[in-house]
Design a protein around this nucleic acid. Structure first.
Lengths: 160, 160
DNA sequence: GGCTTTCCCATGGTATCCCATTGTATCCCG
DNA sequence: CGGGATACAATGGGATACCATGGGAAAGCC
């Protein structure tokens, strides 16, 4: 399971978006009918996506790291303490797909993306992202610079 | 079973509230007609909700972890000792829904929330919360800061 | 008898189902 | 290896079902 490639998909006037076949194929075989969309925790205008399984696994690791082994009872009771898994959950929605792979995008995500008639789907290994196409172009250009610098650094400190 | 998303629901002049379909779908298949509401143990103005199954499971863990293996007998007999599960139960009510998913919200919870004409339902993974919409906005803004800080910390202390 | 609670029906909006179209990739066959 | 035949991916659109909500009427409850 590894999401790859960037694909531009239409957002039709009914608010529907197609999850490309390349991404559908990465969903668990026993749960192909639905997945999860959630707001990025620290970048506005970006929506993340994952299988239900992948999202739930992330929440679990998150709680383990944030609270330790005895955290589960505390989290169930303590409504005052900050719970990062609960925060992500509140910004997440389970999305059911039609048999042909399309889903209707909730208005909150359309607004967050400021998407007019298209959405850029970007594979990020264990999750994927939805971007406003124009914003993604800018981001990708910036990342190309960083990647080049990263590779330069590698060769400097490489397995000398 | 994992409650997600935040949904604003009307509180009509008859005191009725709709449990959204997204939340109804997370209730156990064999117990879709009712659920539990209970006051937050440590944040006033917040009401928690869960399936009967989920609430009971929490009480059980609470007694097991807070009182040890002999806890249940002690709790049954000792009316002097403090019993957190008993405390939560006293502040809880089983709520029956109409077939269309609506229920009439008990006055005690309406007062606790200070809800006028709307209630914010927030998914918190294994339970959900009811908030006064305005108070939830404030809380969410505060949590966004904490989440960003949490993510920053992760990258700093990465799994070295 | 007033008051609240439950049941039922009505409605607007959205999402879902189903069918159709186009283009591309794959396959088969000689 | 060409040339069509076939399958599937991506998109459009009409019809239908369901969600969220309002409100009337019946059924309790002091």
């Amino acid at each position: 399971m590894a999401f790859r490639s960037e694909i531009l998909i239409k957002l039709d006037k009914k608010g529907r978006v197609l999850l490309p076949a390349a991404f559908r194929d990465e969903l668990p075989a026993d749960d192909r009918g639905a997945f999860v969309l959630y707001h990025s925790p620290n970048v506005s205008g970006v929506v993340n996506g994952n299988s239900r399984m992948g999202f739930d696994a992330m929440l679990e690791r998150l709680r383990a790291e944030a609270l330790g082994p005895k955290g589960s009872l505390k989290v169930a009771l303590d409504d005052e303490a900050f719970d990062p898994a609960g925060y992500l959950s509140a910004g997440a929605r389970t999305i059911a797909m039609e048999p042909d792979g399309r889903f209707s995008m909730p208005a909150e995500f359309v607004e967050a993306l400021d998407a007019a008639d298209g959405v850029m789907l970007v594979g990020k290994v264990e999750k994927f992202q939805l971007w406003n196409p124009a914003r993604w172009q800018a981001r990708r250009a910036a990342e190309r610079e960083k990647m080049a610098a990263f590779v330069r650094n590698l060769s400097a400190g490489g397995d000398a």
